[in-house]
Design a protein around this nucleic acid. Structure first.
Lengths: 190, 190
DNA sequence: GCTAAAACCTAGGAGGCATAGGTTTGCGGA
DNA sequence: TCCGCAAACCTATGCCTCCTAGGTTTTAGC
């Protein structure tokens, strides 16, 4: 009978697609195998185990996110760069929820070191704030603020956790204003 | 043989304790049953199913968090209130990670409506910012900013996601300063 | 002591992860 | 062209988890 032509890459891609549908926490080797018309055990030739698969998805998703962030911040500075970065990130979280969740997965330092996606995200994050002229360690503090705010916002948005009737897009824009303001008037450590 | 004396409440408490150890996403009815020296099926007399158990833990944890937030903000205003609120929340997230995760669980509106913990958290959140004098809808926007930032920070902290060597406590204090500043100089909608 | 509800049991099915070890497919080289 | 080998895929199996059905034992109140 015709073979499915499995590959670690194809399995990873299918897992990422599945994650976008059912959530990164709910992907299943069995479901993937069913999708390929293959027995569960067959996947273990391409992926070490569940954890390995999730890590692969995380690395792949990080690469895709890095691409988006790069184009969104290219040639921009200041508030424009901040908004481009944040909106690109939010778009990714909304349109590819499973992949986004994957980018938040805790992974070993060795994996991060070997993942160009993770590396590029960090580099872009630092670079896109250069217009605000913050010195270290304040720059790192500021990045931690932004990262926390974005991640929290996307997580709450994804779980429909904002119950108040206030328009969410309006809140989002107000938050970006507030963050820009916080960066502009940042009080540098003595 | 001696009975374990199970109760929906005792099962919920045990589940919360277990969540603090293994993570809210990793609690297991089997593990709880083992802990009580009881068969898996016995637990179904007290909780409907896994989802019901998680919801119960979420409601209980929300109550505990509300207590802490209440005492942390009592008699304070402005920056003091902000810091008290934020630090109490962070303490909770760090010392009771499973319970904290439970408070973030998406629950049906009916459950929220019937959970005094969830209601009190919302009330305290709005009340503790009264000193900044923000009108609606800006107050809601500001609260969404704080909530996002805290939730994101705690999640990243819990997963050891802050890789940079910069002292985390220092970053946290800097972030609180920035948030206080953002609230103090908030630009109200026209 | 009797009774009814609450607490707990055994049995069993469905589905998920993972390993061991065997079979088929397809491709490069003699 | 055919051989052999590696990759792709298989069956069988074991363990864990959730959950249901239906039965038994304990406990508390009258």
């Amino acid at each position: 009978m015709a073979r499915a032509g499995l590959t670690a890459d194809r399995v990873t891609e299918a897992a990422a697609d599945l994650a976008d549908v059912v959530g990164f926490d709910n992907i299943t080797l069995s479901a993937l195998a069913r999708g390929f018309g293959v027995a569960d055990a067959s996947l273990y030739s391409h992926v070490k185990n569940m954890r390995d698969l999730r890590t692969r998805v995380a690395v792949r998703a990080a690469g895709e996110l890095a691409d988006r962030l790069a184009t969104a911040t290219a040639g921009r500075a200041g508030k424009e760069s901040l908004a481009g970065f944040a909106n690109a990130w939010r778009d990714f979280a909304r349109h590819c929820p499973g992949r986004y969740q994957a980018t938040q997965m805790p992974v070993e330092p060795e994996v991060v070191a070997g993942s160009s996606g993770h590396q590029r995200i960090m580099a872009i994050t630092y670079a896109h704030l250069s217009g605000y002229g913050l010195p270290e360690p304040d720059l790192t503090d500021a990045i931690r603020l932004l990262r926390s705010t974005y991640q929290g916002f996307f997580a709450i948005e994804a779980s429909s956790g904002f119950g108040h009737p206030r328009d969410l897009q309006a809140s989002w824009e107000k938050i970006l204003d507030a963050l820009d303001n916080a960066l502009t008037h940042w009080r540098v450590s003595s």
